[in-house]
């Protein structure tokens, strides 16, 4: 089998706030024998502008994204919502560029959220991860990963195979954490009320680790867990799957 090659789309949030998630993604992919490159011109997928109503800005960024990743065989991102932006909205955003239509369709078909790539493309469920000490892990279904990409079973399969992780389902794992990008700031009270209910469900599991496929949701939930002094610690799935694996550093 020819060696798989992917381009990492690290996402702006991971790049600037959670670089260790990007490093874990690279390490994990390399551990599984995938060659990884990082197109240095990349910035953002445009979701912030799209969600804010700045469609023209989002279009410009989307167009740029298509150009930056033009030569990539496959694109993998440690984020469901950024990949969902590409899958669910690039068609709309770039409608004014019919010459790009084919390329957009091809880009969408080649772009994967990390767990999706591991399970659906590589066919891997056990990445060989082993936690330093046994821990109870609960998984939050990020809205766009679940509803736009159908990512729900993949992360659970990967997590179930992690040595030392006891996967415990929370109540309503598919209900939103209340983040919603600028919604969390513009409508902070509503966002916080939704979050309160979510965290109640998280904590009811007695989990040591709260994991998900999006750093944005984890930033939101984790920010409140930290504020409350909770013992549950947020951890991106890439980092969790990297625990105890051999392999080169990114």
């Amino acid at each position: 089998m020819a060696q798989k090659r992917v381009s990492l789309f690290v996402t702006c949030l991971v790049d600037q706030f959670y670089p260790e998630v990007g490093e874990a993604t690279v390490r994990l992919l390399r551990h599984l024998g995938v060659e990884v490159d990082f197109p240095a011109d990349q910035t953002c997928c445009g979701q912030v502008a799209l969600n804010g109503g700045y469609r023209s800005h989002a279009t410009a960024v989307a167009k740029r994204f298509v150009e930056v990743f033009r030569g990539s065989e496959a694109i993998v991102a440690p984020s469901g919502s950024c990949v969902a932006t590409i899958h669910a909205h690039y068609g709309d955003l770039l409608r004014g560029y019919p010459e790009l239509a084919e390329e957009v369709a091809s880009l969408q078909a080649r772009t994967y959220e990390l767990s999706q790539y591991l399970v659906d493309v590589l066919g891997v469920e056990n990445v060989g991860a082993r936690l330093p000490s046994p821990a109870r892990v609960t998984y939050h279904d990020c809205c766009h990963a679940l509803r736009d990409l159908g990512v729900g079973a993949q992360p659970r399969r990967l997590l179930s195979a992690v040595d030392g992780a006891e996967l415990t389902e929370m109540k309503d794992s598919a209900s939103c954490c209340g983040f919603g990008g600028t919604f969390s700031v513009k409508f902070a009270d509503i966002s916080s009320a939704i979050l309160r209910e979510k965290l109640h469900n998280v904590e009811a599991t007695g989990a040591d680790v709260l994991t998900a496929v999006d750093s944005s949701c984890l930033m939101h939930m984790g920010g409140a867990l930290r504020r409350q002094g909770s013992r549950t610690r947020p951890m991106h799935i890439a980092e969790l799957l990297c625990e105890g694996i051999e392999g080169e550093r990114a």
Partner: peptide
Amino acid sequence: GWTRTRDFPRAAMRPFRARWR
């Protein structure tokens, strides 16, 4: 509005792209 109920992360001193380079 965010920080009333949630901590906000600090941007990394060295972003991913610098580490990659």
